[in-house]
Write a protein that binds this DNA or RNA. Structure first.
Length: 732
DNA sequence: AAAAAAC
């Protein structure tokens, strides 16, 4: 049941993403909300038409380039009282800043070296004064010392400079040879040793081989001591400082405790969610995976922590591409949708009008499903495939909720944000704001973006004025949080877009810290096209009896994307890519690494095909500009890393080329989801070599996608067909 | 192993 596109019809294409004039820089758009509240925040009858008028008067401001305005409005806003010198300063500083950015790598290298030196300096004077206390220091600073040992040559140089050091020399031999190991071990193990005196020879061996000790410890305590110790340890858990001192023990704890914790969390929901899906796992991929991925097992354990079932943590589980259980969800049928409009779902007139302005006249299925429960204040998990309108699905009810919550209240200067939307990339955060801002403005609420790669000043300035909704990426949000410049304590609604991705290693912990900073009991909304039990870590801590939604019938049959796999010789790859990319329509090429993305963009350029790159090695200005070049059509080819895999919407990409096959089926789904959006047609071509066929087959199985494997050589008609046929299909 | 996310 392809309810998605058909009911919505032609308007559908616009539904979930606003279409701005191609000439309109969205930088200007986004700037408006926070920075210049030119928009009279005091206006008591916010009329969205009125705001529009202001927006259209914006061309004046557009003349100010991004970098000009970045610091200046900020400086003015914050320090109105002392304008005399500061504007001048801020101008002077800008060029300097921009130059600095180019130099950052150099700085960063210096920083890495200096800290080491500075640490040494701090420690040495202390040593010379506190000779008697050294043992204490050892306890706290062992890691530091161990690093210092590597740097001893540096110390020896310093010794010539400092008299105190010469004193140290006499003592060093003692410490190094005899005391350090003894002290460190004694403290942690005194009880154990006293019991183990019979084993002293073992100790001496242990000193040389720490791993050996650790193994011994795990075995011995388990038999006799562990049971008594564990309760103690569990108390320690609450005391992080204690843990940090006990670094020698971490391996044990980590090995023993974390899995236990994660399993606990996973088990709770597992009971409720698992039932439907367990059979699938068994049928599916395990045997195949285990064979394929053996070499990769090394990292498996960390990944397996997110698995729903402890059994999976076994070495049989592949590490790269884990299939998590799908969440048991209430499927929303297209029929449910047909009758109700946005107004019937509980959204106010202004918001409904704003949505219509965005091209969303009637709710898409995922929107019809989630709006009401979100307005009820429920925690919601929602899965809707790529391009199905998820942004509006959470954005519209979120704005309505905030509006209701502050009904009758005055929007005060400097008010703390009431809602937070987290996204995994800056581009996505920006894009979400372009939709949510329009909705928020229609009822007089303000949004601002908080993401990295740009100066903080403007963002902080917006926060000081007061905003209602912030949209951003974890890094900068946590940064401002720690600086005390962002107060999340009033946040009543928190949204995680691409929620499963936000639960991956490296994202999860910052996200957890951010969510913990929101108001207690705040509503949580988790959205993703590939939402699965990977989000269990967040669900268990932050969500209360969440409602889970997905759209029924979202299978490949209802998809508008055609998938093809070209099996090629590696030596032909560059030229095959050239011929695929040499076409009229917009083409998005995915590469696995930044370097390769950059290289391909240059390669295409050299071949006479205008192309730009998008990856994390570019500064934000270039990232934004290059993406905008594709959006506006100034170039037709964008080569990107997976930074562009999720969420990014460009209206009419009709061909996605995976120059490197993805490792995870989710990545495949998200990458290919950059085309075929809102019911449009699109093609995804993946280039692989023969050796990769089997892995690719398995990945497609997990993605539940059928795609023909076509052996292809340079000059084959297939290439022409793929790159050319798109032209006629675009209009369909 | 790579990518993303702060300065």
């Amino acid at each position: 049941m392809p309810k998605n596109k058909k009911p919505a019809g032609g308007r559908a294409a616009k539904n979930f993403e606003p279409r701005y004039g191609a000439k309109t820089s969205f930088q200007d758009r986004k700037r408006r909300p926070g920075a210049e509240g030119p928009v009279k925040p005091g206006s008591k009858s916010p009329n969205h038409r009125g705001y529009r008028a202001e927006t259209e008067a914006a061309p004046d401001k557009r003349r100010w380039s991004a970098s000009d305005r970045a610091g200046r409005d900020e400086a003015r806003g914050i320090r109105q009282s002392a304008r005399d010198d500061r504007p001048a300063r801020s101008f002077d500083d800008r060029p300097a800043r921009s130059f600095d950015r180019n130099d950052r790598p150099a700085r960063s290298f210096d920083r890495n070296e200096r800290p080491a030196r500075s640490f040494d300096r701090n420690e040495r004077p202390a040593r010379s004064f506190d000779g008697d206390e050294r043992p204490r220091r050892d306890a706290g600073e062992r890691p530091a010392r161990s690093f210092d040992r590597n740097d001893r040559p540096a110390r020896s140089f310093d010794r010539n400079d400092r008299p105190a050091r010469s004193f140290d020399r006499d003592e060093r031999p003692r410490r190094d040879a005899g005391e350090r190991p003894a002290r460190s071990f004694d403290r942690n193990e005194r009880p154990a040793r006293s019991f183990d005196r019979d084993d002293r020879p073992a100790r001496s061996f242990d000193r040389n081989d720490r791993p050996a000790r650790s193994f011994d410890r795990n075995d011995r305590p388990a038999r006799s001591f562990d049971r008594n110790d564990r309760p103690a340890r569990s108390f320690d858990r609450n005391d992080r400082p204690a843990r940090s001192f006990d670094r020698d023990d971490r391996p044990r704890r980590d090995a023993g405790e974390r899995p236990a914790r994660s399993f606990d969390r996973n088990d709770r929901p597992a009971r409720s969610f698992d039932r439907d899906e367990r059979p699938r796992r068994d049928f599916g991929d395990r045997p195949a995976r285990s064979f394929d991925e053996r070499p990769r097992r090394a990292d498996g354990p960390s990944r397996s922590d997110w698995n729903a079932s402890p059994k999976r943590s076994a070495e049989h589980e592949q590490r790269v591409d884990v299939v998590h259980e799908r969440l048991q969800a209430e499927a929303v049928d297209a029929a449910t949708v047909t009758g109700a409009g946005f107004a019937e779902l509980g959204l106010g007139d202004n918001i409904v009008r704003a949505l219509a302005g965005l091209g969303a006249d009637k709710p898409f299925p995922i929107q019809a499903a989630t709006v009401a429960p979100i307005l009820e204040g429920r925690d919601v998990l929602a899965r809707g495939r790529t391009g199905s309108g998820k942004t509006i699905a959470f954005g519209a009810p979120l704005v309505e909720s905030i509006l209701r919550a502050q009904a009758g209240q005055r929007r005060e200067f400097g008010r703390a944000p009431k809602a937070l939307i987290l996204a995994p990339t800056r581009e996505l955060a920006l894009q979400i704001d372009r939709t949510v801002q329009v909705i928020a403005r229609s009822v007089g609420l303000f949004t601002t973006q908080i993401y990295g790669g740009v100066p903080q000043a403007r963002q902080v300035g917006a926060l000081k004025k007061g905003v209602d909704i912030i949209i951003g990426t974890p890094g900068r949000i946590e940064d401002l949080l720690n600086q005390g410049k962002l107060d999340l304590s009033q946040v009543q609604v928190a949204v995680l877009d691409e929620a499963d991705h936000m639960c991956e290693l490296g994202f999860l912990e910052p996200v957890q810290r951010i969510l913990r900073a929101t108001a207690k009991g705040s509503q949580k909304l988790l959205f993703s096209a590939t939402l699965d039990r990977e989000v269990a870590a967040l669900v268990d801590e932050f969500l209360v009896e969440p409602a889970v939604y997905e759209v029924a019938g979202e299978d490949q049959d209802s998809s508008t994307i055609e998938h093809r796999v070209l099996v090629i010789e590696h030596r032909d790859k560059a030229q095959i890519l050239d011929s695929l990319v040499d076409r009229e329509g917009k083409t998005l090429v995915f590469a696995r690494t930044r370097a390769y993305a950059e290289m391909l963009a240059e390669q295409f350029d050299d071949a006479g095909i205008a192309a730009v790159a998008l990856h994390g090695d570019l500064n934000q200005q270039k990232r934004t500009r290059n993406l905008e070049k594709l959006t506006s059509g100034r170039v037709n080819v964008l080569v990107a890393t997976d930074v562009a895999a999720r969420g990014i919407h460009v209206d009419d990409i009709d061909l996605v080329i995976q120059a490197d096959a993805p490792d995870e089926y989710k990545t495949y789904l998200h990458r290919s989801g950059r085309t075929g959006r809102a019911g449009r047609s699109g093609t995804v071509v993946t280039l692989i070599t023969r050796q990769r066929q089997r892995r690719m087959t398995e990945l497609l199985d997990r993605a539940e996608i059928e795609a023909p494997f076509e052996p292809t050589q340079l000059g084959d008609d297939v290439l022409e067909e793929i790159s050319g046929r798109q032209l006629s299909d675009v209009t369909s």
